[in-house]
Computed example of a mutant assay.
Amino acid sequence: MATRANDQTPSPGRPRGSGKGEQTRARLIAAARTLLAGESAGRFTTRNVAALCGLSHGMCHYHFQDRTDLIVAVIEDIRPEWITPLEEAVAGPGRFAERAERVIALLTRPESPDLAHLHAALHWLALNDERVRAGLEEEYRRWRACFVRLFQVLADERADERAEESGREGGGDAELDPRLLGESFAAAVDGLAAFQSLEPELAAEAVLRALMASLAAGA
């Protein structure tokens, strides 16, 4: 790794700069994404990323401590493309059924080839890098939490309905476990995605609708 020229090197615990420095950092992340999505992850290096940007290798290490630091930045950078829309779909207005419709629409939307390749590369890198694995785990926890929150909406609706019938105040359905239902649905979605990569003609939307309806009805 190149030696840093001064004492101003950003580190994970320090605030990032602004202006030109942020633009350079964004360029390096974009180049890293391009390389990870288009080449073997095993050949990914900070030197190649810097070269793609037309920057010095030392400049790359000014912004990122090492190769893993850059990969973790890529993991965070793709969050708005697959997790944030799901969070917004669940947090948006409407009852459980409406929110579930928005979620299923997102889950069955075709993933771009670049993002699919990028996810595959990141999973491969996580096999041999603890920090990359930890970064991915954190993102998947956030992704799974969306489904837990969705089923929490259902639990609250059921509680309110029972409260209206009995004249008591609601507050959550003790018989419905949002975490169990949400985690179960998330696991099914993850497995379905892997299966669909081998069987593209699989009717994923129909499968997800049936699963969502079964979990809601069974609960």
Rank of each mutant, 00 (worst) to 15 (best):
A5D: 12
A5H: 10
N6C: 10
D7S: 11
S11Y: 04
G13E: 15
K20P: 02
E22M: 02
T24G: 01
I29L: 02
I29D: 02
A30S: 14
A32V: 05
L35W: 10
L35C: 10
A37K: 02
A50C: 07
L52E: 11
S56L: 02
M59L: 08
Q65D: 15
T68A: 11
D69S: 12
I71E: 01
V72R: 14
V72D: 09
V74P: 02
E81I: 11
I83R: 12
P85N: 08
E87I: 08
E87Y: 08
A91K: 04
A91S: 14
G92I: 10
P93E: 13
G94V: 08
R99F: 01
E101N: 07
V103Q: 06
L107N: 02
P110E: 03
S112L: 09
H123W: 13
L125H: 00
A126L: 11
N128I: 06
E130Y: 06
R131Y: 12
E137V: 04
E139W: 00
E139I: 02
Y140M: 13
Y140C: 07
R141V: 10
R142C: 09
W143G: 02
R144M: 08
C146H: 00
R149K: 08
A159Q: 03
D160W: 06
E165Y: 00
E169A: 15
G171L: 06
D173H: 09
L181C: 12
L181Y: 05
E183C: 07
A193K: 09
A206N: 04
L208N: 09
R209E: 05
A216V: 07
